[in-house]
Simulated scan of single mutants.
Amino acid sequence: MNLRPGLLLALLLVLGGAGIVAGVLIGSTGWADLQDANMSVILWEIRLPRSLGAWWAGALLGMAGAMAQGLFRNPLADPYLLGSASGAGLAVALALALTGLSPQTSSLLDRIGLTGIAFVGTLVGVGLTLVLARGVEQTLRLLLAGVVVGVVLNAFTGLATLWAPDILRAMQAFLLGNTGLLGWNSVWVMAVCGITAGLVGLLGSPALDALTLGESTAASLGVRLGLARLLLIGAFALATGAAVAQTGIVAFVGLVAPHLVRALCPMLHGWLIALSAAAGGALLLAADVLARALIRPQELPVGLVTALLGGLYLLVLMHRRAGPRR
């Protein structure tokens, strides 16, 4: 199935808009009662920023996944590849263990502080990966360094939770993804980070197109590989850090969104980044609505829903590519 990129972008944006409307009207208690005078506060101050925030978080992860897969020329690369998620997890675990903060009981100021700590942890994780890889010159070294940093930081996160077992519940909400605390501040932060990272990604898209031909060919075409890698790593680290800081670790969106877009419409990286952002936003928004609706009045962690949907999609994709045995 091949669609024109412009048409596919329009369809994905329409789906995203429909998801926002559904997110506003559908809550953990069912459909909104528009006749209720008190419902307007819930709709405009809770559900609307949550839905917009979920779309932006998915868009950030989608564009970050497209940049990561193009930069490393690996369709299995995802936004958490360079230690961003493990760094954020460790930072949040240490903050909870040392201060006793909990997303369920903290004030608005405390939550802003916690998301800021998660963002700093993301940057620290990526920074450690770059230091261990001795820069951005070698792709394989970057990949290996990211795996090592992720394993080590996850081990320290486990030690922090053993040291302070009271933070297990809060950490579970972070590690499984949570859109329930998104507010207008979260929307603006992710929007600014998303626009910045998207512009850098679009500017670097010619370098990603050249890298598909190989590093030596890209260098012969005049691409400054070191600078391009540094800018693109900075862009997808910014996008990933903003999303993780606001929603926790949401699985599979950054991996599946570029795959889904490429299956519908093969294209150059400029379109791929934009379309992956739109697809990621629609996917996470749909997962958020499902998380609220499936077992209401309780809610599923949105990361569980994205993991199930993403895993099923990749299984179907793997089955189709394998084809019949001879």
Rank of each mutant, 00 (worst) to 15 (best):
A173H: 08
Q172G: 11
S84N: 06
L90S: 13
V120C: 14
T105W: 06
A68D: 05
P79C: 11
A145F: 02
V147G: 02
L96F: 11
A88V: 10
I117E: 13
Q138E: 14
L60Q: 08
V147C: 01
M63D: 01
V124K: 02
L162C: 05
L96K: 01
R141Y: 07
G127T: 12
L94H: 06
D110S: 04
S86H: 08
T122G: 10
L90F: 11
D166R: 12
A59N: 03
M63W: 13
Q138L: 11
Y80S: 13
V126K: 02
R111L: 15
V126Y: 05
A85M: 03
L132Q: 03
G89T: 11
G89I: 08
P165V: 07
Y80G: 14
Q172W: 06
L143P: 07
R73I: 00
V120Y: 06
A173S: 14
A118K: 09
T105G: 07
R111C: 03
L130K: 08
S84W: 05
I112R: 06
L108W: 04
L76H: 13
R111A: 12
R134D: 05
A145V: 12
I117V: 12
L90P: 11
A133V: 10
S107N: 09
L140H: 05
V136Y: 04
T157R: 11
W163C: 10
A85W: 00
G135F: 14
G58R: 01
Q104G: 13
G70W: 01
R134I: 13
T99L: 15
M67R: 08
D78P: 08
Q104P: 00
A95V: 08
V149M: 03
L76T: 12
D166K: 10
D78Q: 06
G127S: 09
V151E: 00
A91Y: 02
R141H: 07
D166T: 15
A164V: 07
T105V: 14
V131S: 00
R73N: 14
R134S: 02
R73M: 07
G87K: 02
G125M: 04
A155D: 02
A170H: 01
G158P: 11
N74Y: 07
L162H: 08
Q104A: 15
L101N: 06
Q104N: 10
L144R: 08
N154T: 08
W163S: 14
A97P: 09
M171V: 07
G158Y: 08
L108Q: 04
L130F: 10
W163Q: 14
T99N: 09
A97Y: 04
P103D: 15
T99W: 15
G146R: 01
L82G: 04
A91K: 01
A66S: 12
L142N: 00
